[in-house]
Design a protein around this nucleic acid. Structure first.
Ligand SMILES: [Zn+2]
Ligand SMILES: [Zn+2]
Ligand SMILES: [Zn+2]
Ligand SMILES: [Zn+2]
Lengths: 132, 132
DNA sequence: GCAATTGATGTAATAACATAACATCTGCAA
DNA sequence: TTGCAGATGTTATGTTATTACATCAATTGC
């Protein structure tokens, strides 16, 4: 997915996520953008929908939050499953992918004749700093 | 985790999930149990909390729903990560685990000195019947 | 120029998911 | 019998996400 020029609202939402230390909920983003004219959740959700489509933002299903992609300008997401390690203490998110994991999971679903559309891998725990 | 005798509410919730074709939301469970005296979401959420703790029910993060474990009486969950394939058309859920996937993911997090607590792997797509 | 179309935006209302706070009950142990 | 712990009942509230409808702006074809 090539990323077209972002609209005003998309840019505002993306900038908030890029500057954030960790993942943010849609309503947190809304609050941060009230000074810029945002009034309703839909302004955030609509921007996020596009940013997800362009692959520059990820949704973390297990914490109902959104994070800017850690691999800007990289097209690696189109080749495999992205996995996340999420620190439950400080919110830091690490993003990675592993072709062997992809291979095992996709091999299993193929054996079941299951047609995968979207795969979520999220590891919650404590980052090095917080586990100390 | 050994499963103690279930309480009345826990049994009701578990029975609903066991008889269901697929995953159910907490509020769907609530509606199915109104005839049995359930009135409030908390009655469901409290029962689910225990059932999750006992490992007899799983939460599907990506669809905010709950499903009875497909491996009754099995303790395999204590040895690894459980993965789910969820049909977005009919709701059917397949549950499996793969030690190689566990190994790769845990190897990666160990390299990052990240301490994992709970891992989610969910594949949404179409089952064989629905993809046809 | 000027409709027609398309995509983006604004706004209000509502739906769906989850928890906080507090009271009560029940079984069991000191 | 009293105290405690766990389960339950109830109300209210908090959090996340979508529906419905109106408006606006840029583009296209005439
Ligand atoms: Zn990414
Ligand atoms: Zn941390
Ligand atoms: Zn299971
Ligand atoms: Zn299906």
């Amino acid at each position: 997915m090539t990323t077209p020029q972002l609209t005003k609202n998309q840019s505002l939402v993306f900038d908030v996520l890029e500057k954030a230390e960790g993942p943010l909920s849609a309503y947190t983003i809304l609050d941060k953008l009230r000074d810029h004219g945002f009034r309703a959740p839909l302004q955030v959700y609509r921007a996020l929908e596009k940013l997800l489509e362009y692959g520059v933002v990820h949704r973390l299903e297990s914490i109902n939050s959104f994070v800017a992609c850690a691999h800007p300008g990289d097209n690696c997401h189109s080749h495999g499953i992205v996995a996340f390690a999420i620190c439950e203490s400080c919110g830091q998110v690490m993003e990675f992918h592993d072709h062997e994991v992809d291979h095992r999971l996709m091999g299993w679903v193929r054996g079941q004749k299951f047609k995968p559309e979207k795969t979520t891998i999220e590891i919650r725990g404590l980052c090095e700093a917080c586990a100390a």
